[in-house]
């Protein structure tokens, strides 16, 4: 089985880093994501290593790193599935005191938990860190941060923080 051929059959947007044995599939259409993921899974990539985002000024790249435990040929290969979505414009609101509150709305991508159940916690983490809503995730709640961080999305580059009070009296 030649992995390169098999993968290029699935998607034409394949970036290969020969030296590091890293493969990356770039998906341009959100609707294709689940189909591509299913065919990758059928190839033998059976678990998600990490789900994360990369924040750019106007867009967010969501990356699923998948790998294989069951197929001998695929064990040494890291495959990244990357999808880019545009960020909505931040909404600026001025409250009564004259402070400007920047409300940064989350983005939505399809969830791959139905394909790879192993991503269930990673997708929750990506949700709270980047404000990526995974459509179809069965249990999309905050995982690590307290709920009072909602709407601030810490790992986006424009994150400004004000430490919340430890105790709300």
């Amino acid at each position: 089985m030649n992995i390169k051929d098999e993968l290029s059959k699935i998607s034409t947007n394949l970036v290969i880093d020969e030296k590091r044995a890293n493969y990356k599939i770039i998906i341009d259409e959100p609707s294709k994501l689940i189909d591509v993921a299913n065919s990758i899974k059928n190839l033998g990539f059976d678990h998600v290593v990490s789900v994360t985002g990369v924040d750019y000024p106007d867009k967010i790249e969501v990356i699923w790193h998948v790998s294989s435990y069951s197929s001998e040929e695929l064990k040494g290969i890291d495959l990244a599935i990357s999808m880019t979505v545009k960020k909505p414009e931040p909404l600026k609101q001025t409250d009564a005191q004259g402070n400007i509150n920047v409300n940064r709305p989350p983005v939505t991508v399809p969830s791959l938990v139905s394909v790879w159940p192993s991503g269930i916690f990673s997708e929750r983490e990506a949700f709270e860190m980047f404000g990526i809503i995974f459509d179809g995730h069965p249990d999309l709640r905050y995982l690590m941060l307290p709920e009072d961080f909602y709407g601030t999305w810490p790992l986006r580059k424009d994150f400004t923080y004000q430490k919340p009070k430890v105790f709300i009296e």
Partner: peptide, 8 residues
């Protein structure tokens, strides 16, 4: 912050 509430 989450833990500090518990510690207190």
């Amino acid at each position: 912050i989450k833990m500090a509430r518990v510690v207190k």
